[in-house]
Computed example of a mutant assay.
Amino acid sequence: MWYSVLQKSHMHTCANLLKKAAHNLKGKSAADQRWIVRQLNDPFVKAAHAYNYRCRSAFKLLEMDDKYKLLKPGLNVIDCGAAPGAWSQIAVQRVNSTGSNEALPRGTVVGIDLQRIAPLDGAHFLSNYDITDPVTHAKLLELLPGGRAHIILSDMAPNASGFKEMDHEKLITMALSLMDLAHTVLEPGGALVCKYWDGALAHLLQEKLSAVFRDVRTVKPKASRKDSSELFFLARSYGEVK
């Protein structure tokens, strides 16, 4: 269903786009102008508005979940780097954390970010919390039913410095910190989805994941821009390595 809306949104006329661009580009730097034009022409941005998702990244998780069936009613989910909350919106819908469908089990969604996250029905947000801090881990143990999560999601990334190798290293380090979180709260057989930028250290993250997850694969959703080095590791069957 969401894909049909995406197709329709992409059929806006060039004239309308140019009118919007002309209004928004005045007084902007060249970099800002490029960003605005890209946003105006991005069908996933338009579709996010149509579905009232907080940002276009919602479609990355939607595509992965549609294919790999990770999010199911009744599951407990941690969303790392949750701001502005688009992945949490998808998780809330699919694990039934609002309890809107009384015939299905009710799940739990906890989102964490260093930034503030606007409230979302069905999600408990830990704003201004560091995912690497033991205090955060202790808080998660309190919030999650039974102190366990079935899925850890991570779309977190460092602020870009403009130095590709440095940013790559920072993101790999952030993703590696999820291993400690998994050790603390992830249910045996659970799954982890984490973003990384392709580069020299990607193999290190893959090796660490493969040591504790039976199935680890690389995924690039269609909503990830083609010119981006963004990829995701999808790791399943935690603790079931032979």
Rank of each mutant, 00 (worst) to 15 (best):
K69S: 13
T136P: 02
A15G: 07
N24H: 13
M166S: 13
K46N: 08
A50I: 10
D130V: 08
G27Y: 05
P134S: 13
L126F: 10
L192G: 04
K19Y: 08
R34L: 15
T136N: 06
L70P: 02
P188Y: 02
D133E: 13
D66Y: 04
H124Q: 15
N52C: 13
N76H: 15
N41L: 14
A86N: 02
L104S: 12
H124N: 15
S154C: 14
L61T: 00
C14Q: 14
L104K: 11
R38F: 08
S229H: 07
L62G: 03
R38I: 12
N128H: 15
I36H: 02
F232Y: 15
R54D: 09
C14D: 14
G162Y: 02
N24P: 03
M64A: 05
M11T: 11
E207Y: 06
S97F: 01
N101L: 09
N52R: 15
G74K: 02
K170T: 10
D167Y: 03
K195A: 13
S9H: 05
A118V: 10
P119V: 12
R94L: 10
R106W: 00
A123C: 15
L181E: 02
G190A: 07
T136H: 02
M166V: 11
P119L: 14
G239Y: 03
G146N: 06
V110P: 01
V241Y: 03
K69E: 10
R217D: 10
K242H: 11
Y238G: 04
V77Q: 01
V216A: 06
K20V: 09
P73H: 13
S229M: 09
V135S: 14
K208V: 11
E240I: 04
I36L: 15
P84G: 07
R38W: 07
W2Q: 06
T132L: 13
H183D: 14
K220V: 12
A58F: 01
L231V: 06
E187S: 11
L204E: 15
K19D: 10
S210N: 07
F213C: 04
T136L: 08
M11C: 10
L186V: 05
M166K: 11
A31Y: 04
K170L: 15
F59C: 05
Y238Q: 03
N16P: 01
M1S: 14
W35I: 14
L141C: 09
Q206L: 05
H203F: 11
S224I: 04
F59P: 00
G107F: 01
G99P: 03
K72D: 08
I131W: 00
L120R: 01
R34G: 03
A191W: 00
V219S: 05
N52Q: 14
D215S: 14
K195E: 09
T184F: 06
H203K: 12
K20P: 02
A211Q: 12
P105H: 06
D133R: 07
V185G: 04
Y238N: 03
W87E: 04
L71I: 07
A48G: 12
R34E: 15
E187L: 12
A160E: 03
V5Q: 07
P158W: 06
A22F: 05
M179P: 01
L176K: 06
G162I: 04
E230D: 08
A149V: 08
S100W: 05
D167L: 09
A50F: 11
L153C: 05
E240Y: 04
G146M: 08
G199E: 02
K139T: 13
L178C: 08
D65M: 08
